[in-house]
Structure formats: structure tokens, C-alpha cells
Design a protein around this nucleic acid. Sequence first.
DNA 1: TACGAACTTGGACGTGATCCAAGGTCCTCC
DNA 2: GGAGGACCTTGGATCACGTCCAAGTTCGTA
Lengths: 124, 124
Amino acid sequence: MTAQRRVVAEVLDGEHVHLTADEVHARAVAKLPEISRATVYNTLGELVSLGEVLEVSTDRRAKRYDPNAHQPHHHLVCARCGAIKDVHPMGNPMADLPDSERFGFTVSDVEVTYRGICPNCTAA
Amino acid sequence: MTAQRRVVAEVLDGEHVHLTADEVHARAVAKLPEISRATVYNTLGELVSLGEVLEVSTDRRAKRYDPNAHQPHHHLVCARCGAIKDVHPMGNPMADLPDSERFGFTVSDVEVTYRGICPNCTAA
DNA sequence: TACGAACTTGGACGTGATCCAAGGTCCTCC
DNA sequence: GGAGGACCTTGGATCACGTCCAAGTTCGTA
Ligand SMILES: [Mn+2]
Ligand SMILES: [Mn+2]
Ligand SMILES: [Zn+2]
Ligand SMILES: [Zn+2]
């Protein structure tokens, strides 16, 4: 556990957000000025392998890193400004895929992304 | 309607597949040797705007172009080899998001991606 | 035939991510 | 304390994918 890794972990800890690697880097630099982008990428990659942080790809821009890894959830994304909310749809989407639609796959995961316009963007 | 556009449309027509722009280009070149990548990108972009073709982003690699634009469906993806199947889960995932989980958004779309291991990759 | 709109082309450019060789830190063993 | 080595960090090079752009081409119309 180096100072660099601690800082990256701190940036993500507790905050219920979805930051890009560059945003994590910017916040890390505020605490440890000389931390490099490469180290931020390395550390984020390790946290993802450890299951402490999730990668979220709601658009084709930068990946976002989600520290809310222990409570399963899905995402609601504003198509205009990119704002992201954690959501918990009812039911179990996995159970909604009949065997006849599984083509022999061993299905292990399902990811649901809702899209729409957020209140801010609706007002503007 | 130029020869180039016709060829791109032909490559996608009828086939129930999910090709990358490069794969479309490769197949187009087989029919019209001097078609350029730029034109393939332009034409795919137009087909997407017209609603004739869907963009599918199941991973962070190249976008895939899906001519099955008229029947709503979701995708089942092999985490190992990337194979993609069209699937039709039961129920309406949109209806499963309670108002209390919408945060004032106007929700217009939902995208469901199942992940697992395909029979080929399970065998190997 | 002359003109102009629309299309095509190859290559330059942009973004996000990964790779890599060099240098630094720190623990262990003598 | 000093040498050795494992592991980490760094900046810049490189990569993949996509977009942009200026120049050239095609083709319908007058
Ligand atoms: Mn989240
Ligand atoms: Mn499809
Ligand atoms: Zn918004
Ligand atoms: Zn597979």
C-alpha cells in the first residue's frame, strides 16, 4: 500500500459517484501533486480486479469507476448531459430470459441501462 | 444512391449479424474494391440516422452495426469470444423502474445486456 | 458543354487507454 | 550498515477507433 494507491482509494471511497480516470487523477493530484496518470490507471485496474470498484460504460466516452460495488444496481443516464443515477428496478431481469433464449450460454450477469432526460436538461 | 452506398446496404441487408465498421468495410471491398473506410463510416452514420441500422456497443471495442432495427430486442454476449445473440426477455424492463427510482427523468429507452459463456467457449 | 451540388477519398487529427523502459522505494539478508 | 531484489511509479510512446477536412470526382441540369 503506497501513498499513491491510498490516495486513489480515498478519492473513490464513500463517494457515491461515477468518475472517469481523468477525474480521479485530477482529485488525486489535489492530494498528492506528482501522482501520474499511469499509476491512476494501474490502481483503478487493480481495484476492479479485486471487485472493490466497478467499471461502468454508459457511453463510448471514458469509462467510469463506481465504488458502489457491493450493492447490485443498474444505471439511469441523461442522454443530454450524461448525468448518471444508480437505480434498482423491480424483479430480477436475469429471470426474465427464458431458457429458449439462452442458446446454450451460461448466463452470469445482466446489465440494464435506462436512458432519458434529467430534470435539469428538461428545464433548460 | 451511389454504388458505394448500395454496397454498404447490401453487406448489412438481410444478414442478422453485428458487424464492426471494419468488417463492413472488408466485405464491401470484396464487392467494390476501391471503397474507402471514410465512406463506410459516412454511410453507416446515415443508416443509423435513418433508423435503418442500430449501433450496438456491447464492449469498449469497435461499435457494431445491427440491421435488425425494426424488431426491438436485447443482446446476449459471450464474455470470452464476443459472440452476440439477439434475445427477447419476457416482460417490459421499462415498467420495472418505479417512479421513485426515476429521479424526475423522462425515461425513454432501456437497454439490457446479458453476459455469459457461449457453448463453444464452454466446450473449449 | 459549363456549372454546381453532392459524394468520395486518403490522410491528419483527437480521445481514451495501454504499454514500456527507466528509475525509485523499501524490505530482507548478510 | 550495505547489497540485492521485488515491486511500484513515471512520462512518453504507441495503439485502436472514430471523426474531420481539403481536394478531387461524379452527375444532373441548363
Ligand atoms: Mn453506480
Ligand atoms: Mn441485435
Ligand atoms: Zn441532463
Ligand atoms: Zn464464446
